[in-house]
Amino acid sequence: MKYFGSGHGACPGCGLPIAVKTVLNALDGKVFAVNSTGCLEIISSQYGKNAWGVPYIHSLFENAAGVAAGVEAALRAMKRKDEGYVVVFAGDGATADIGIGTLSGAFDRNHDILYICLDNEAYQNTGHQQSGLTPPGESTTTTPAGKVLPGKVGRKKDMISIAVAHGVPYVASSSVGYVSDIRRKVKKAVKFEGAKYIQIHSPCVTGWGIDGSIAIKVARLAVETGLYPLVEFEHGKLTSVRKIKDRKPVEEYLKLQRRFRHLFTHEKGKEMIKLLQRFADENAERYGLDLKKE
């Protein structure tokens, strides 16, 4: 039984369907899917061409957490909770920017939902504009690298900490580069009663400027450089991190992608790469990513 169909409209090599099918399969399709406006919605929910094999709803860009809370409340009120898990699939823009209000509300009330943030690090559906989860140094269409500016200035919003700070029982990050990690975390998450948050790093071939054939490699490099740490919090406590054997320099990750290419020629590129390396180092320090050599 397929819970997500072939024939959807994603670009060849897109990470979103990989994440979605992994989540749906991990839950044996016992899912009420709630989706925000964005790439996933556009590639999967055209009228008459619906790719979903589970009950699905899309309402707006910024209210998926609220809609999910409503579905959950309805199932509770009508004693239908056994029918399935309420799972949100929302983009990084929908999550960290425009929808953070409804998300915070749903976390605060601790609705029994699993919120999956599909983090492709920009508004990809509308043509690669920056979001709160765009990393610094990325050239997007609203933070283009120019004569003066080296792409986005600022930092990637720490949604993991924001989720943890809400006191929800389960928070994790994962990556399309590691589907078994997604599977394990999803299965574990739904054992917790209350709001769960998993942020999945998902390569966007078009926005990142990569070929599909290296999408998984790039996703794994984000983890192996320490830029995208895979962590797990249970009841606010860090319970697991994916250790890195020989942490790679961030350049190895950056140089493969068009969105960072300017960093290797731009006047401020070096500075930006240094900053990104610093963020990776800080992640390593904070989460203890490095596997100590004996």
């Binding site: 309402s59 409340a73 309805a74 009120a77 209000g101 409804t102």
Partner: peptide, 18 residues
């Protein structure tokens, strides 16, 4: 958490049959 949130929840709940 807001009227926007309230209406959004009603969309979800109503679609779920409530």
């Amino acid at each position: 958490e807001s009227e926007f949130g309230a209406a959004s929840m009603l969309v979800g709940a109503s679609a779920a049959g409530a």
